[in-house]
Amino acid sequence: MDWQTLATQLFPGGHDITERDNFLSGSAQVDAQAVDVIGTTGHVPIGIEIALAQAQAILKTVQTNPGRPILILVDTQGQRLRHRDEMLGINSYMAHLGKCVDLARRKGHTVIGLVYDQALSGGFITSGLIASACFALPQATIRVMGLPAMARITKVPEERLSELARDNPVFAPGPENYLRMGGLHGIWEHDLAGELARALRECGAEDERMALGHARGGRMLAHPVAQAVRTGSDVRPA
């Protein structure tokens, strides 16, 4: 879905989001409440400039609109794979973006991520995955890599991976799998405006994704292992 159509469905009350070099920013109304919006479009690779632009927009919200919720619209093919980005420390730019999201949340801004098209690894980890809660549209693509590339690297035949992927969400791309593992809080099928309003009302500040992944049967060891380490007990069978 293109971002204009998405914005129209998310914000029937109106918005002033603009696009500049695949970077989205603006504000909108949700139930008479103002929300600031940042994001990317055109499956743009996240390089150092666009990571910094997103960070700047979040810091601006923190400074000028204390407490206002932030919606991050995610569409990226992943981190930009260029020598210059690595030379200048793209990991620092990504970390900076993640820290800005984290600071906003701690200062009382609810931060919601929405994968409306593509989300891949490096571009996703410091946007949607560090928000207070992350959602996706059903047709979104979410992955670290596709099965053919995974087969090459792990030296496991692709047919075997496809077979495993049917039961184990760890191996296969797609929002349903991320939902089962707790990486997504929900998938928004209809009434995007209503879903967003509800997410803003119900969103908590704690990171409960391990427990979600356990309850949904998609990530059975993370929660018990973390709990065992935390409490000094043994891992109880799932």
């Binding site: 690894s121 995955l129 670290v144 890599m145 969400p169 990486g183 990530r219």
Partner: peptide, 26 residues
């Protein structure tokens, strides 16, 4: 970075590590 043999779980896990590090700092 993310262990590609369990890619989706590894990706979510790294983001959980980041948040837990920032929780400790907080």
């Amino acid at each position: 970075g993310v262990r590609l043999h369990e890619a989706n779980a590894g990706l979510i896990a790294v983001s959980e590590v980041m948040r837990a590090m920032l929780d400790a700092r907080e």
